[in-house]
């Protein structure tokens, strides 16, 4: 009984390690193939469209609502201490440091990461990747690299948009609806939010998350078992793994940065 349990545990561990190894090797291949991107400008633009532009809607809507909720909740909490002037600072700091990068990465995994995995996985199922290889075209260069780079570039941009729209949402609720002084909202924010420490660190976070989300998405697609079921599993794994990786990394990065 215990032996069986141990065996199961060992097998799971070994599979996980093997997958990580494949993931790292795959990443090396992608990095090695990165220079091929210079021939693929139009491919990259196309991918930034499907990865970045098409995620804009969900990012903007979520950013706005998160900002508005922060404004409302923050006001209710701060007004007890007579400190509702600090609303701008509270909203901006939580958005820029934490919620912007983390929520964007989670939404990005759901919207763009899963789509990337499914697309690459289906290309594998329908032998498109094989066909490309047989046409003497490296699918890593042609298919993976543009998608990886597009996802990697889009993440920080989306995170910045999320945070900016979130601040505007907080402003709308705090100043527009609850009557916090507009000048105090901005000046408190500006005096307490530090460009180097808060904005840049948040930006670095979103770059790291972008790297991880892009990596997981393309790897899971490329590594998917080429069946319908395999692709659906890979898609789920992309979302789950990205969420775990982002939350774990966020803790580490926050501990190191702030």
């Amino acid at each position: 009984m215990i032996a069986t349990l141990l065996q199961d545990f060992g097998r799971v561990t070994l599979t996980a390690i093997a997958r990580m190894g494949r993931g790292n090797l795959f990443m090396l291949r992608v990095l090695h193939a990165l220079p091929s991107l210079r021939f693929g400008g139009p491919l990259l633009v196309q991918q930034i469209y499907s990865v970045g532009v098409l995620s804009l809607q969900i990012i903007a809507v979520s950013g706005l609502s998160v900002g508005m909720v922060l404004g409302l909740q923050g006001y209710n909490m701060l007004v007890d201490f007579g400190a509702e002037q600090s609303l701008g600072q509270a909203t901006a700091l939580s958005l820029v440091r934490e919620l912007g990068p983390v929520l964007t990465a989670l939404l990005f995994a759901g919207r763009a990461g899963s789509a990337l995995t499914a697309e690459i996985g289906l290309m594998k199922v329908t032998e498109q990747l094989s066909a490309m290889e047989m046409m003497a075209v490296d699918p890593v260069k042609r298919i993976i690299v543009p998608r990886f780079v597009a996802a990697f570039l889009s993440m920080p941009m989306l995170a910045a948009i999320f945070s900016a729209i979130g601040v505007l949402g907080g402003y709308f609720v705090g100043v527009g609806l609850l009557g916090v002084d507009s000048g105090a909202f901005w000046s408190q924010m500006q005096s307490k939010v530090n460009f180097g420490e808060d904005i840049l660190n948040g930006f670095v976070k979103s770059i790291v998350f972008g790297l991880v989300a892009a990596w997981i998405a393309v790897f899971e697609g490329y590594d998917a078992v080429p069946t319908t079921e395999g692709v659906s599993r890979a898609t789920t794994r992309t979302v789950v793994e990205t969420a775990f990786a982002v939350l774990g990394l966020d803790f580490i990065l926050t501990a190191v940065m702030f």
């Binding site: 920080p156 901005w186 939010v193 460009f195």
Partner: peptide, 22 residues
């Protein structure tokens, strides 16, 4: 669309830098 996306995100970054932070 991609061009607008880049412009919007740059605007967001500028706003974070100039309006939100110090």
């Amino acid at each position: 669309a991609v061009g607008s996306f880049v412009v919007i995100s740059l605007a967001a970054m500028v706003m974070l830098a100039m309006r939100v932070s110090n």
